[in-house]
Every structure is written in C-alpha cells, then in structure tokens.
Write a protein that binds this DNA or RNA. Structure first.
Length: 110
DNA sequence: CGGATGACGGGTC
DNA sequence: AGACCCGCCATCC
C-alpha cells in the first residue's frame, strides 16, 4: 500500500516540523498533506507511529479544541501534559490554555 | 464483504 | 457553552 505509506510519511514529516513550544491540530495536518477530511486518519497514523517507533513530538498535536485527546497513548495519562508543560505550555483540564496563541499552522511550510 | 472503531472536524440545536 | 449527529478514511473483526 504505497498510498497509505505515503500518507503516514507526510503526517510524520509535518509533525517533525512542529517547532518546540508550538502545537497544531490533526485537522491542520490533514489539510496540508492533501486530505482535509481525513483528520481522523491522521490520528490513526499517529497511533501507528507508536509501533513504528517513530520519534515524533506527538504531544504537540492536539485536536481542534486544543484538548489532549491522545494523552492516553503516551504510556502515562499525564505524560503528554508533562511534556507540554515542559515546553512552556499551560495545560488545564486536558486543555492547552491560549491554544490559539501557540498554534502553529503547518501551512507555513508552503 | 459489511459493520464497528478511532489520537477528528464541522455543523446544528 | 455543551450535547448531538454526520461525514471521512484506514484498519480491524
């Protein structure tokens, strides 16, 4: 499935570009890689990256509300939040405070 | 092959 | 603001 691999590759490529201290959303990534309606699949790709042992700053990727929807996939439910706080973010109730301010639009690459 | 699932998003009420 | 529903797409059963 070259198509699928290409999809994952693009997702990983974008995630790797996320600057430290910034975050983005699954939907934004999906849009940039040419699959604006596949945000859900982006999340699936991220889940797949776990077993791929890909070294991605996945904690910088949240949903459109700035909520840490995927924190349960970081081993410990507080791991994602800790990583974000370590980068200067303020996470309250699984939600990144000032999400819009720290949001990084991957479209900036183009 | 049909239905269910999920780290989502947008729209509606 | 919050709950709800529907569409998307890869994968699993």
């Amino acid at each position: 499935m070259k198509k699928t691999e290409d999809f994952y590759e693009k997702v990983y490529a974008v995630v790797r570009q996320i600057p430290e201290g910034k975050v983005t959303s699954y939907g934004a990534i999906a849009k940039v890689i040419g699959a604006p309606k596949s945000a859900r699949t982006v999340g699936y790709a991220m889940n797949n990256c776990l077993k791929n042992n890909a070294d991605l700053p996945a904690h910088r990727v949240v949903n459109r509300n700035g909520v840490l929807t995927g924190k349960h996939h970081f081993g410990h439910v507080d791991q994602m939040q800790k990583l974000l706080e370590a980068e200067g973010h303020l996470v309250k109730d699984d939600e990144i405070q000032g999400f819009k301010k720290v949001f990084w639009d991957p479209y900036a690459l183009y």
